[in-house]
Structure formats: structure tokens, C-alpha cells
Design a protein around this nucleic acid. Structure first.
Lengths: 194, 194
DNA sequence: TTCCGTTGTAAGCGTCTGCTTACATACGGT
DNA sequence: ACCGTATGTAAGCAGACGCTTACAACGGAA
């Protein structure tokens, strides 16, 4: 229906996609280090040698995964809705197809060069959008603190799996977190300077 | 001065301590997966086989590291000061001897069984102490959100190294974060229920 | 001095890792 | 039908990993 081409038993495009999908799932589940190229290929249903033909290296594949998630969320969402959308994406149950950018982001801890660069760029994107919501002169720091909060919540719920955050109702978390964030962005605490 | 015993060229206690110190430093710097037993032994100045004689396994050593940091901070600090103390510990420059509990905590991401159990227990300790600061009926969730924020800030500053948090003045971060936390703990947003 | 348990090291085992090579099979154009 | 290329696999390499084993040297007690 959605594809008019005849089904091919060998299809480079489909294989590439399958590998990226498998890699995305595993990287978000286990993080970069604990995911092996053999795991990825096995989940995609192919030989791991293909992974190197298509992507060259494990690191390059990781970059493709991050790039493919592709800043879509941060670019397609109006700034004033971004925080809630990102938070709800992070809290949603893990099965459906959804934006996993922040999960990949927080799973990609490590000191790898290319990886940390990608991470920094993506974070900058979120921070600068959130910064438009306040006119404080330390707007960037404030919005960075909020991004950090998002990461911390995701870390606690998804990676560590610690209660009560892990099993809390997304609505409750949203209500509390968004409320506190709004006070941070809108109402300026006394900053002790002129 | 502080040790009246004669200096011994062979001292099991001192060796143990050296190994734990080296392990603490490396685990907090690189995380669990990226730290090898050979790295640890080399930094301590010993053969890696000793590590297994004293601790049995890499995982057991990690548990000793966490245990030795030892919940001291969370138990020795009065609840109303805990948040600031923990945050400042997380933000302080990396050289001096200081409490690294939260750093180890956030570095120990992964799915290892013993590790994740230790992590959960430590987190519970922090959460329940912070929960005494509010009388909301979802006190635990609120304080867990604050612990998550601590982790997120530490992650951004220490692990990811992303500006502006990475290079911000600790005082500024403290002022903003503590202010927002107080509103979360003290002033209850409308929770839409009876 | 002899002796033996403690404290240390060198070497290596088995396994897993990212990655490569050599080869098989399917496909599309002629 | 034929053939060259695109797509796929099986096997294996070199190195790193956690961990073990066999053995050397120290140091206190006899």
C-alpha cells in the first residue's frame, strides 16, 4: 500500500534501515559501550560484517543513529511546548515508535570524541530554544539547568529505574516539573547583584 | 605524624587503600565499563592480580568503592542543608579530597545487578531524607525529582562537559537550583485532586 | 638461622571485542 | 542464457578484557 515497488529479497536501503533501527533500540537500552556490533546485527537479522560495509565503524553507526533522530523534535516543536513534549517523550512507555533523541543523548555517556561532540551540539540546540522563553540575562544557564533536569529524570526513570520516579504517573511528574521550571524561567530569584 | 608505625615496604592495608583510591578516581572519571582492572592496578602502582586477591572481582571492588564513600554525606548532613551540600560537592573542582558519592552514582549506569541494587539503595537514602523537608503527600516523588536534578546537573557538568553549566560559577547554579527546588518542596502547585 | 605465612609479580587462559577477508548467492541489464 | 555488480555470509585476526595460576621475595616468630 505504502510501497509500490515489488518486494525484494535483497534491498540495501531496507537493510540499512533495519540496522539503524536495531542500533537505535540497543543504544538506548544499554548505552554505547554495552552494545556490541554482533548484538545489533543479530537483532536486525543480518551478519555483522554488513554493518561495517554500510557504516564503516561502530562509532560512525552511532553518529548516524543520533543524526537520524535528527533534531526533529527540537525543530518541529514551538519553544513554549518543547519542554513538555520532550519530557513526555522521555516518560512515555518504551514500545511505540517515538522520539528517542534525549534517551540516546543520556545513554551516550563516555569520553569518545565524535560522540561527545555530537552530544554537545544537540544539547546546545535544546538549550538555545528553551532560552527564548525567558529574558533573564542568564537565560542560557537557566535553560541548561532545565535540560539537565530532563536528563536526570530520564536517567532515573529509564536507566537506573529507581522509584518513585520510575513508576510515577507521567502526568504527576509533568505537573511538578513544569511548575518548578516555570518559576525558574519566569520569576527571577534575587541574584544579589545590580 | 599521623602514623606512628614504621613505614613498611609491604602493607596490605595501605595497598588495599591505594587500590580503592585508584578505583574511585577512575570509576568517577570514566565510569564502570570504561575502567579496566589493569588501569586501576597501574594507577595504584601494583599488579592487577592483587586486585583479585583483595576484592575477588571487579564488581566487588566497585561495591567497596560505593560502600566506602559510604552514605557519610547523607547521614552526617542535616536534611535542610543536604541539598546544598550535595550540590556543592558535585560542582566543586575535581582535585581535592571530597565526597564523590553522587559522581560514582551517576557514573555507574548500566544493567549490572549488584551495581544497580547499590545504586537504588543509595538513591532511596537521599530521597527519604529530602522528603522530610515537605509535607506534601507526594513528598517522595518531589524529592526524587530533586535528586534527579542533582544527577542531571552532575551529568551535564562532569560527564558531558557541556556549557554553560560546565563552566558556570557554582554560586550561580546553587542560587537558581535551590530557589526552584524550594518552590517545588514548599509551595504546592495545584494538583487537580481533592 | 630457619621457617612459613603474607604480600607481591609474571605469564597466560579463555572469551569477547571491533573489524577484515574470502567467498557465495541474488539481481538486473544485455 | 550469460555476466558483472550488488548484497549477503562464514571464518578468522589482533587486541583487550576479567580472572587464574605458578612462583618469587619479604618479614616476623621460633
Amino acid at each position: 500500500m505504502t510501497d509500490d515497488r515489488p518486494e525484494r529479497r535483497r534491498d540495501a536501503e531496507a537493510t540499512r534501515r533495519a540496522l539503524i533501527d536495531a542500533a537505535t533500540a540497543l543504544f538506548t537500552e544499554r548505552g554505547y559501550e554495552r552494545t556490541t556490533v554482533r548484538d545489533i546485527a543479530a537483532r536486525a537479522g543480518f551478519n555483522q560484517a554488513l554493518l561495517f560495509r554500510y557504516f564503516g565503524s561502530k562509532k560512525a553507526l552511532f553518529s548516524e543513529v543520533v543524526a537520524r533522530q535528527g533534531w526533529q523534535q527540537v525543530r518541529d516543536t514551538p519553544p513554549e511546548r518543547l519542554l513538555e513534549v520532550a519530557l513526555r517523550g522521555l516518560l512515555a512507555p518504551g514500545d511505540g515508535p517515538r522520539d528517542r533523541t534525549l534517551e540516546v543523548y543520556l545513554r551516550s555517556t563516555g569520553t569518545g570524541e565524535a560522540r561527545s561532540e555530537t552530544r554537545r551540539l544537540l544539547g546546545r540546540e535544546y538549550t538555545s530554544v528553551l532560552a527564548t522563553l525567558t529574558d533573564a540575562d542568564d537565560a542560557e544557564l537557566r535553560s541548561d539547568l532545565i535540560l539537565a533536569w530532563l536528563l536526570g529524570i530520564g536517567l532515573t526513570r529509564t536507566v537506573i529505574g529507581k522509584d518513585p520516579i520510575a513508576s510515577a504517573d507521567p502526568d504527576d511528574i509533568c505537573r511538578l516539573m513544569l511548575h518548578a521550571s516555570r518559576t525558574l524561567l519566569e520569576k527571577l530569584p534575587d541574584d544579589g547583584s545590580a
